[in-house]
Amino acid sequence: MEQLLWALFTMVLGVAGCAGYFYGSNALLDRIYPANAAARHAGLSAAQISTNINKSNAIRPWLFLGPALLLLTAFLIYPVIDSLRLSLYDADKESFLGLGNYVWLLGDSGFHESIFNNALWLIVVPSAATFFGLIIAALTDRIWWGNIAKSLIFMPMAISFVGASVIWKFVYDYRAEGQEQIGILNAIVVFLGGEPQAWITVPFWNNFFLMIILIWIQTGFAMVILSAALRGIPEETIEAAVIDGANPLQIFFKIMIPQIWGTIAVVWTTITILVLKVFDIVFALTNAQWSTQVLANLMFDWMFRGGGHSGRGAAIAVIIMVLVIPIMVWNIRRANAEMRGH
């Protein structure tokens, strides 16, 4: 409880500190380069006031940006550069190995397994989540209880990966044959006459059972965004198609989908980035046993297990980063294009 009070106190202090900084630094700037009514009263000439305005206009943006830039540099930009450097060094962070860690990665079976599994995740999860999101968005737009349905499908978004892992582990729960199954998946399998399986221990296929969890979480995100995009389609295009005698399926695939390709791409790439970073689900459910290793978990392993090897860990982080870069470039281009459009 005391700890919570400390947290609240820090929060108030932090906010007050920020407010104080912004207020104080601005007041200081106005005092050094006075340009307001007070300056006029003080008898400054118009030319002086206008240089003051120019100077303070050049400085003020940096006052506004200062704390944010400082934090971004300390917590994201510096670590990225330092990770690049560390990936070239041995575990002691001092002996230079060149590309040694990367060469080692190429021969490591754990890395091969991770790359293979990550490729599976990258193919399956974004496409499945986008697909289901699109289908559900299209379905729920046509019925009166659509918003309730959307809300329920969106809900997993609020659940942590660990929480979701527990929820699904219960779905996959396995009891030996003959016992009553308490996991719903095995209960259905037995009901249909099949044999119960310990789903998350079956190599290769278990990857898909883990992926289902992420698809379950991310479909809501895809649905929300695609549903907004579907609503943004001009009515006339659909009416014209109806008049031309197109059936609902044709309208959906030939008129609506082509108009929202841009949004589909955004959803796809956003989920792709999330997939590259996926860690919690594998960590919580299998901890990479039964051939379920992925890059983010492998990185965590090398960081902490058995004393840790910062060089190898950093090298894996760099690999994840390299995989993200194409999407990053695409995002920046898109943002730039949008800004010019304004």
Binding site: P79, D82, V318, N331
Partner: peptide
């Protein structure tokens, strides 16, 4: 552009440093 780029930087890059 830097902010948009940082949006997708994997957290894993930050951990060790």
């Amino acid at each position: 552009a830097v902010v948009v780029g940082l949006l997708v930087v994997p957290l894993q890059m930050s951990l060790i440093p």
